[in-house]
Design a protein around this nucleic acid. Structure first.
Lengths: 145, 145
DNA sequence: TTTTTCTGTAACCTAAAATGTTACAGATTG
DNA sequence: CAATCTGTAACATTTTAGGTTACAGAAAAA
């Protein structure tokens, strides 16, 4: 599979949208992400369904933020994009009744659950405002695209 | 992509091999993993290259453990199977010079690094002997396949 | 030495999931 | 009505684990 870059892309584009402050079309956002408008609408659609952005059709339409960067955490975006767990353990299902397989799976699942808890904790305490701050600090004033 | 079940499968099969105590052919191991011998040789080959098991060709050949379960951690098996990091952050490479993209990627990478440290710590302190103990405790005496 | 039984690999095919792409339908503004 | 958006369907593409077939080579057994 291709690696999932949706979270990174959405963080990226949300910060840009907030810094620009207005409404953006899928076409313009696609340029920010070096992709095409359909991919943008697909992915931003999930954020809209979770109250992070809103969209308007028709002439003059486009996408805008529903909240400020301070009110959006990385975890909010993650949850909008993926329903279930963040990390999966990659267990085996070769002999579901085998106690050795079950023990192996249980150990891996438990370890991944602990790692995910750590990840989730960081995601929950990192706002997009902080990303914007890092970007401005490192990239100087040129923060557009 | 199909999810990577190699680690779970190798933990599973190594515990079986140790409990059985002798030498096993790819064919028999394939039955434990509900797959075919070529997949087994491919995957066990990586463990052999890391000193976890050893193989012998020819009639009467097969695979056997090079260490006891106490001397193999989950991290050892993980490292034999995958060279680099365990968790990857799924960053974006749409505009590598964009400071916002870089800040987004940096935040994700840092978070994943913290989660991976946690995961690695657990892997490093979990031996296969412990998995065997869990299996025997939960599955009763029937620990074969 | 010939047969049998193993591993080691090459060379494919398949599956699954994100991403890319084309083509429209529908909505909204001018 | 014309122009400009979003919303979706319907594919094609890419990547990687896994499955499969087919042999070559090694080693014990006959």
């Amino acid at each position: 599979m291709k690696s999932d870059g949706r979270l990174a892309r959405m963080l990226h584009v949300l910060v840009h949208m907030a810094l620009l402050g207005g409404k953006e079309t899928s076409e313009r956002i696609a340029q920010m992400l070096n992709t095409n408008p359909v991919v943008v609408r697909r992915t931003l659609g999930a954020l809209r369904d979770n109250g992070i952005v809103e969209s308007e059709g028709g002439r003059g339409g486009g996408w805008k933020m529903s909240k400020t960067l301070d009110d959006i955490t990385v975890l909010d975006v993650q949850r909008a994009l993926h329903k279930g767990t963040i990390l999966s353990a990659g267990v085996s299902h070769d002999h579901p009744s085998c106690p050795v397989e079950r023990a192996s799976n249980a150990v891996l699942e438990s370890a991944h659950a602990a790692a995910e808890a750590k990840l989730r904790e960081i995601y929950a305490t990192t706002t997009l405002a902080e990303i914007a701050r890092i970007a401005v600090a490192s990239g100087g004033e040129q923060a557009a695209n």
